[in-house]
Amino acid sequence: MNWTWFHRLGSPPHAYRLAQRLTPWFAWPAAILCLLALYGGLVLAPPDYQQGEGFRMIYVHAPTAWMSLMVYTTMALAAAVALIWRIKVAHAAAAACAPIGASFTFAALVTGSLYGEPMWGTWWEWDPRLTSELILLFLYLGYMGLRAAIEDPQRADRTSAVLAVVGVVNVPIIHYSVSWWNSLHQAPTVMRFGKPHMSPAMLWPLLVMLIGFTLLFAALLLVRLRAEILARERNAAWIREELGA
């Protein structure tokens, strides 16, 4: 197999230019899909037979929760690649993931709390799903704090990458928490083996929103990646060329 493409991705100028070119191809479809899903979820989908109109919170709660896990997995993969093959661009990608993931984990916890109060009668419970998701937020914040605390950028990259890789054990724990332990939280509706437990009219806006958020993450990551690459490349000639400085 030819691995040149992989090595080219590791080259900062190539990664920078590729990220720049690709961003609009993720950003615009993300915007269109999110707006479409918003209309589908708020207007077209019928009310739920148990949760009434309140179930519409799923269209923001499930995608933000999906982002919290997907962004962490991406960050841990990038960190692992960076540690194994010593690729600077992969460290830059991992660092770019953390603030995005932390903010969406925060949104998942807040929307979940708003969902919990009318449906379960409580804003918060020290339940396995909720507690493990809160730990995920602390993992993101710990990762960012660790990076900020270490002055030498290369040591900050390596040390924080180890934390990101170790912390990935929390991802399956969060996903399976509702099956392994008694939880207030419902079992997976969509992310399960076999058919989703949802009628098509309710399901399609959710799937479109999940794809829209994933594309949004890609666009955000590409923009942040460029900033991280610039910060790591001190005086490379290609930056002079790129910025016209």
């Binding site: 009310p47 009434g52 109109e53 309140g54 519409r56 919170m57 923001v60 709660h61 995608p63 933000t64 949104a107 807040v110 929307t111 708003l114 969902y115 109060e117 009318p118």
Partner: peptide
């Protein structure tokens, strides 16, 4: 359907 106090803040935060 009476859930306005939960649905709209959830959308606003997101």
């Amino acid at each position: 359907g009476g859930y306005a106090a939960f649905v709209w803040p959830a959308y606003a935060v997101t």
